[in-house]
Design a protein around this nucleic acid. Structure first.
Lengths: 205, 205, 205, 205
DNA sequence: AATGAATGAGGGTTCATTCAT
DNA sequence: CATGAATGAACCCTCATTCAT
């Protein structure tokens, strides 16, 4: 977020950034706006204003508002999902993987604040929703496979269970963010709930 | 939905409704619009047009767009939450109550179609979000009490558990709506997950 | 053009016009703008500004810019084509009809100034072009029939001849408007050219 | 059109062109764009993009967009008007000259496709319109002189007649382009119409 | 000679909201 | 109670043009 607000040279001219820098800058600004006011607050105009740049410049970097939002979604979720996957891969058990995943999510959210909650929950505008659905599918499949393998749950059930478990993560984060529990307590509770649920589905199912 | 579209007398005049009827009519129309196109589709103009009434009339019944939406939210969630509570109250066990609640939700969603899904998920405009938060608090507290009492889970944990469980319900409905499982399978899976999780939290916690 | 520019009451408020009046007013303003600067000069914004009315009001009367332009085209060409047809119908010979038509065109153009020339010539935006093509087809067919009947010209040739003749009318008007000839001289020359051409095509063809 | 698209050396560098070559290349690209989408499609940006060159470079060769379009107009109409004049000069009679001119127009249009039609008809932006008027004046004078000399028509009338005749040529081309007649039929009809008209004006006038 | 980042103005369109009638 | 004309602000998007490098 080093470039978020002021990007002006001493001469008062807006800084002339390279293409990649400006693009990141736009995404930084958009992230801040989502964090503050949700998707609605992200306007090509509001982004430009906050970036200290002229109205039309955003269109040199993103085809339209939807694509800007989609790019933001991909950047931010990627920064969470990659380390989460890595951390989970290091663990042997489902319980360990759940705990590791939640741990990474807490880490990322600690930095990103309300941004991710909004990114994941908001009623989505077209292009973002597409990305969201794709991401959801990918992650749910991974969890479903783990559940099926470790607990012997049949495929259909394990897919539903994965969906149910994952859909709660934003709420867990929200509980933490609003002071309804410590990170450790919430991690423990959520992990145990998932593990117990998966084990139970495997026993009788 | 009895008044949704045609509210004209045989003389072609707009029907003369009582204040309360007119208000309900507005909400009926708004409900239909949310079901079709989400919150965004609810415009003071679109509502008036569909209600067969002049543009400014809505303001005689609702302070502004936000309040119209909030009133809709309260009416619709109330029509789900009251029967859900009643049904749950008739059951003895947590498992029974979960199953009963989910059953009512499926029933209502079957009738109301996409309306409720949208009402519960959408990125909320201010006044709606207020109501949403309040409703969430009330319902979570009820579930938390049940969990605490039946499984001997401490208060903080049972509140987190209730929040986690409830946050998944929209996803369960979505799975059903998108054909990812039958009503029976999903009810069973979800109920077992909740019950197993609660039981586990009670054992060690 | 009585309403063209100032439509304000003594109190300084913009006049509150009936729907039909306001619509006509918009078309009057658009006509003036086309006359001055061609199609490009007609902007929803420029029209509103000249009409002394807020930017968005035009959209309460026309779906979009294209439809405003199309409505203008229909109104203006209709005011020329209806009397032209009537006048032509009163004449017996092709020569008489040509003369009568050109006479009406001159009459209308005298009032409307450069408006019609621009309306008929401009590279058309979609919706206008549609109307233009339709009008052209109708009028050419009428002339073609006359030529075929009076001079015994075969159908294909008479259709081409009608198209050729009619395509020159805007230029005739332009010659007059730029002082390259009197109304009488130009009418006489054009009428004789058409008649001689038609007769010739009938003789050998 | 030899340079239209690919102007890169094997090394992938943009080809190093002489100033004159680069200018021609810009005009080639602009011509292609007009042919495809009319004047509106010619953007300093679209031209640069298609030419494989940076956005600002056009301004090193043309003062502004209007001058680029004007240069295109002059180049393209010149390539039609010079052979047309040559061909007409080889003929003795007015009839022959008309036929020869129309022949060249057909030839050029066959190659250039929709480009010329658009160039000649489009609602003109300032600088282009200037050139168009000048060209019109020159060509009309030449035809007027022919009519005056061969048929003994007085000067004013022959100027009007020339204007009338020439204004139909784009329509003749359009008839052909839209399949409303063969090249031979249309040439014959148009030529006879012009000749008969001129002869008639000479007789009584 | 050439690049490409950036501006700034204009124009299309939608809506919540107000208010004269 | 009800209408519907009108406002005004916000947004989306495109482009001619400039200018630092």
């Amino acid at each position: 977020m080093s470039l978020t607000d002021e990007t002006r040279t001493q001469s008062g001219q807006p800084a002339r950034l390279t293409r990649a820098q400006r693009r990141e800058h736009f995404l930084d600004v958009a992230a801040a706006l989502v964090a503050e006011g949700g998707f609605e607050a992200v306007t090509m105009e509001s982004v430009a204003a906050r970036a200290g740049v002229s109205k039309g410049l955003g269109y040199a970097y993103f085809d339209n508002r939807g694509e800007l939002l989609a790019a933001l979604f991909e950047r931010e979720t990627g920064e969470m999902d990659r380390p989460a996957t890595t951390a989970a891969d290091r663990e042997e058990t489902f319980e360990g993987k759940v705990r590791a995943t939640v741990g990474v999510v807490f880490d990322v959210v600690s930095q990103k604040g309300p941004l991710l909650a909004r990114l994941l929950r908001a009623e989505a505008e077209g292009p973002v929703d597409e990305r969201r659905r794709k991401r959801q599918r990918v992650i749910e499949q991974r969890w479903a496979r783990l559940i099926a393998e470790e607990f012997g749950v049949d495929e259909a059930t394990s897919r539903a269970a994965a969906a149910v478990m994952l859909s709660s993560i934003p709420r867990v984060i929200e509980l933490w963010a609003t002071g309804k529990g410590s990170r450790e307590e919430l991690t423990e509770t959520y992990t145990r709930m998932c593990t117990a649920a998966a084990r139970d589905l495997g026993e009788t199912g």
